[in-house]
């Protein structure tokens, strides 16, 4: 059996988070090449600062400046860095106890070789030239007994209150064994549904299992490209990525022989004239544009047949 269709899926988005006063202070100070911790209930200085004491849970507020030099307390060696990591050459992840701190900060150390780094090694921050108020304002740490670059003058009027973290993840998305013939069918202009062996409902698009019976669907059913509008809405609101200027009609279309309607675009009729029960037919894109996608059907349009009686689709609403 051939493997189901699969394709790369890249998921990318920015998380934008408010910092609150504690992390905001930490990130603001990083911009000025200063590292700031906070004193815990037991007197220990936590770097990065914690909002609440990890033992007593009381709110913490006494900021303490620490050095941007320190000592490696533990490390591992990354011979093949992954996307997004601080260095694109082999480096060490390390827990670094900065001078004046009692806890350790996680960051990268540019040590060149695992033979060059040891627990107890002295390191200093390598500050980024263009700092934005993020943990990545420290590019990495380097092995050194020397002080790091000195702090810059603080400009108190523009504190960091938000932090943007881009996330990019990569997947291989696989179609299910039941979606596969559906997608391959679309490439040939055919509409392939699946029938549940238990309840005999016909699903288009197919699903890996019948949601009523929990059993995989097994029988393929080829459907025509005509159907009935079960319900619809008139889209008046513009949104990001919209392909057609509003107003237009999004309709649930129940293909003849199917038991589940799907959402598609309805054109060729004024929105105010669209009705539940209206008979429609698919308008396909030119064959050379077809792929494994429902977008091969550009839209539906009225077929001119008389409206379907309510009873014929009332169970599919």
């Amino acid at each position: 059996m051939t493997r189901p269709l699969s394709a790369p899926l890249d998921v990318g988005f920015d998380y934008t988070r408010s910092t609150g006063p504690t992390l905001g202070r930490f990130l603001t100070d990083l911009r000025h090449r200063r590292v700031t911790g906070i004193r815990g209930a037991d007197g220990r200085v936590h770097v990065p600062p914690l909002e609440y004491d990890p033992v007593t849970a009381e709110p913490l507020s006494e900021f303490v400046g620490v050095a941007s030099t320190g000592v490696v307390r533990g490390w591992s060696w990354i011979p093949d860095p992954l996307e997004g990591q601080p260095l694109d050459r082999p480096f060490a992840w390390a827990l670094i106890q900065l001078d004046g701190a009692d806890t350790a900060l996680l960051h990268a150390v540019d040590a060149g070789s695992p033979d060059a780094i040891t627990t107890g090694a002295r390191v200093r921050a390598r500050w980024r030239a263009a700092r934005v108020g993020a943990i990545t304002d420290i590019e990495y740490f380097e092995l050194s007994d020397e002080p790091a670059d000195p702090p810059t003058d603080a400009s108190p009027d523009n504190d960091v209150t938000m932090v943007v973290t881009p996330v990019n993840l990569h997947y291989t998305h696989s179609a299910s064994p039941t979606e596969d013939p559906f997608l391959r069918g679309l490439m040939e202009g055919r509409l392939i549904a699946q029938r549940c062996p238990a309840c005999e409902k016909v699903y288009f698009p197919p699903r890996p299992a019948c949601p009523t019976d929990g059993v995989p669907t097994t029988d393929q059913v080829e459907l025509s490209d005509r159907g009935t509008v079960t319900t619809f809405c008139i889209v008046n609101v513009p949104f990001l990525g919209q392909r057609i200027p509003p107003p237009y009609v999004s309709a649930y279309v129940l293909l003849d022989g199917a038991d589940i309607p799907f959402l598609h675009l309805l054109l060729g009729i004024a929105p105010e004239d669209v009705r539940m029960g209206m008979r429609v037919e698919a308008v396909w894109k030119p064959r050379e544009e077809w792929g494994p996608t429902m977008q091969n059907i550009d839209h539906f349009r009225p077929s001119g047949e008389p409206d379907a009686p309510f009873d014929s689709y009332s169970r599919h609403l």
Partner: peptide
């Protein structure tokens, strides 16, 4: 990389620490 999403989103995840790299620190 996916497991970096469970780390502190302010001061840790932006560095994209990987699960094996972190475990290596603990092991050492």
């Amino acid at each position: 990389r996916v497991l970096a999403m469970q780390l502190d989103p302010y001061v840790v995840t932006p560095l994209w620490p990987d699960s094996v790299g972190l475990a290596g620190i603990q092991a050492r």
